[in-house]
C-alpha cells in the first residue's frame, strides 16, 4: 500500500527556512548590540584622533550639536519651513492623485488620454525639473512644494490606478447579477480593494516627497533643514550635518509608521487570511 506523500504539509524547519524564523528577542539583542557597537566604534574613532573629527564627528558631538540647535530659533524656523513644504506638497499630491487615480482606473478613455503624460513623468527623475521649477516658482517655499508634489503624485496615482484594475472580477460579476448599481459596486467592492495599493503608493510617495524637500533645499533655498545641512557642510560643521540627516531619518521612520497604523485601521474589517 502506497503512502501518499504530501510535501505541502511539511512544516518548514530551521534548516530549510532561511532567516525567517527566530525569536523577536534574538532579533532585538543582535540588532541592538550591533547598533551599539557601531556607535561605540564611531565614538572611539572620533576621539582617538586617527581620523580628523572634522570629517566624521562622533555620536556625542552630534548629540551636543543637536542639543545646541534646539535652543536656536533659526533651527525651529528651518524645521517649520521644511515641514510646511512637505505637508503642502504631499497633501496636494494625495488630494489630487487618489481621486484622479480612481478615475483613470475606472475609465478606459481617460487612461488612454492621460497615460502618455503619467508614463513620461514617471520616467523622469522629477528632481531633474528643479532648475525649471525654480525659474517658474522662485527659490522660496513654493518651488519646493511643487517638487515635493511632483515627486509624490506619480507613485500614488499609479498605485491607486492599478488598485482599481486589480479589483476582483468575480465579486463585480456577483454584484452585477444581484443588480447592484455602479455606485454600489464602486463603494463596496472597488474602493475597499484599492486600500492596500493606495497605501503602498502613499508610503512610496512619502519617501519621494522627503527626497524632494532635501534636493529642493540643497539646490536653492533660503531656509529649511536641507538648507541647514548644506550650509553646515560648506562650513565643515560635520556634527550639524549628521544631526540634520538624523532629523530626516526620524521623519521618514515616523511617516512610514503613521501610514502603517492608518493602513491597519482601514484594514481592520478584513477577515484574517490564515
Amino acid at each position: 500500500m502506497a503512502v501518499p506523500i504530501n510535501f505541502d504539509q511539511d512544516a518548514p524547519d530551521e534548516r530549510t527556512r532561511p532567516a525567517e524564523t527566530g525569536s523577536a528577542y534574538e532579533r532585538f539583542v543582535i540588532g541592538g548590540s550591533t547598533l551599539l557597537a557601531v556607535l561605540l566604534l564611531w565614538e572611539a574613532f572620533g576621539r582617538s584622533g586617527l581620523i580628523d573629527p572634522l570629517f566624521i564627528s562622533s555620536p556625542t558631538r552630534v548629540a551636543q550639536a543637536g542639543f545646541g540647535l534646539l535652543q536656536d530659533s533659526d533651527f525651529w524656523n528651518d524645521l517649520r519651513v521644511s515641514g510646511l513644504e512637505f505637508l503642502f506638497g504631499y497633501g496636494l499630491a494625495v488630494a489630487i492623485a487618489i481621486p484622479l487615480g480612481l478615475a483613470i482606473g475606472l475609465s478606459r478613455r481617460l487612461q488612454y488620454m492621460l497615460s502618455p503624460f503619467v508614463d513620461t513623468l514617471n520616467a523622469v527623475p522629477r528632481v531633474t525639473l528643479l532648475p525649471l521649477i525654480v525659474i517658474w516658482a522662485g527659490i522660496g517655499i513654493w518651488s519646493k512644494v511643487v517638487v515635493v508634489f511632483l515627486g509624490a503624485v506619480i507613485p500614488i496615482l499609479i498605485n491607486t490606478q492599478s488598485g482599481v484594475k486589480a479589483s476582483e472580477a468575480r465579486f463585480i460579476r456577483v454584484a452585477r447579477s444581484f443588480s447592484a448599481s455602479r455606485l454600489k459596486i464602486f463603494s463596496s467592492i472597488v474602493l475597499p480593494g484599492t486600500v492596500p495599493f493606495v497605501f503602498t503608493g502613499l508610503k512610496y510617495g512619502a519617501g519621494r516627497a522627503l527626497l524632494g524637500v532635501v534636493v529642493g533645499e540643497l539646490y536653492a533655498s533660503t531656509a529649511g533643514i536641507g538648507h541647514m545641512i548644506a550650509a553646515a557642510g560648506n562650513t565643515f560643521q560635520t556634527d550639524l550635518v549628521f544631526f540634520g540627516v538624523l532629523i530626516f531619518m526620524v521623519t521618514g521612520l515616523i511617516v512610514v509608521a503613521l501610514l502603517d497604523r492608518l493602513e491597519r485601521r482601514f484594514e481592520r474589517w478584513r477577515p484574517d487570511v490564515h
Binding site: G22, E26, R27, I30, G31, G32, T34, L35, V38, G207, L210, L211, V213, V214, V215, L218, G226, I229, A230, A232, G233, N234, V241, G244, V245, F248, M249, G252, L253, V256
Partner: peptide, 20 residues
C-alpha cells in the same frame, strides 16, 4: 538581525541628505 536596523534606517532616510 545585525544589519536590519541599518538597512531600514537608511531606507527611511532620503539618502541624498548625505550629499553635503
Amino acid at each position: 538581525y545585525a544589519i536590519d536596523p541599518f538597512l531600514s534606517a537608511l531606507n527611511a532616510t532620503p539618502q541624498v541628505a548625505f550629499l553635503p
